[in-house]
Computed example of a mutant assay.
Amino acid sequence: MSQLLYKNTKISYSDAGKGTVIVLLHGFLENATMWDSYISAFAEKYRVVTIDLLGHGKSECLGYVHTMEDQADMVYAILQHLKIRKSIFVGHSMGGYVALAFAELYPENTKALVLLNSTTYADDHERKINRNRAIKMAHKEYTSLVQISIANLFSIDNRESFISEIEQVKKEALKTPLQGYIAAQEGMKLRKNKEHLLHLTSYPKLLILGKKDGVLNYNDNIKQVEETNVPLISFPDGHMSHIENRDELEKVLLTFFKSC
């Protein structure tokens, strides 16, 4: 991983391969290591950039609230530093929110967009209440809160078969400092609905959801691509398709990249 100083804040990123640029954006409590097993496959034909988002992995916190637009501006700075003009974005969960913010702020730099276990919808009232509750709990029981949160990202059926993977995800998640946790929760709470990007933009888009996702209700979220030309790929498992459906996801993404 390399580092760039952005607004006096250290940002960690990786850059591998040559060709059309694929930017892989991790989710909340994750970091760029979630993509490690995909980079080698993708970098054979593409230039692959991964970034630790603000307050995650080896990237420092920029403030006490990291809006999705703050994150997108940081991503833009990394790509400018790398002299990259246009990219295909793949965003997992919160990474999808960041990709949507980027696409709205920098449409001329967006070649295509994949929302992986993510949504264009803003938080509803209940979700905001749950985030506030989690922030309060984080001040008291951070480690146990993170561990429980990670286990719940996998479908119930997979929690035993992926036990070693779950432990590794927990280990990476606990590298997120408390300030990074809170800043991301506050930022996600503030985000606006971006559904219009699915309807009004001309670049290729793809939505990938898990039918047993405990974070994003499958039946609610398939509605966002109704009356659009955005394809929907449905996997049978939970929120962690990059682990629970790894091989199938790699094939889906490579097919999508080839079509862009």
Rank of each mutant, 00 (worst) to 15 (best):
L105F: 07
V75D: 10
S118K: 00
D123M: 09
V114A: 02
P107Y: 15
V114C: 02
P107Q: 11
A112L: 05
T119G: 03
A122T: 06
A101E: 09
L82M: 12
K111Q: 14
S118N: 01
N117K: 00
A77H: 15
Y97K: 07
F89A: 00
G91I: 03
T120S: 05
G91H: 02
A101K: 08
T119Y: 01
I84N: 01
Y97D: 11
T110Q: 12
I88Q: 03
V98F: 03
L79R: 07
S87F: 07
G95L: 05
A103R: 05
L82R: 12
S87T: 08
N109K: 13
I78E: 13
H92C: 02
F89E: 01
S87A: 14
S118L: 00
S118F: 00
R85E: 11
F89N: 04
R85Y: 10
L105A: 15
K111T: 07
G91N: 07
K83N: 12
L113E: 07
L82F: 03
V114E: 03
A122C: 09
L82D: 07
P107K: 14
A112Y: 01
L82K: 11
Y106N: 08
L113I: 09
V75P: 01
L113R: 06
R85W: 08
E108G: 13
A77E: 14
F102N: 00
T120Q: 01
T120K: 03
S118R: 00
Y76V: 11
V75S: 13
L100W: 07
L113D: 04
V98W: 03
I88G: 00
Y97Q: 10
G96F: 01
K111V: 12
K86V: 08
K83E: 13
I78N: 11
H92Q: 09
N109M: 13
A77N: 14
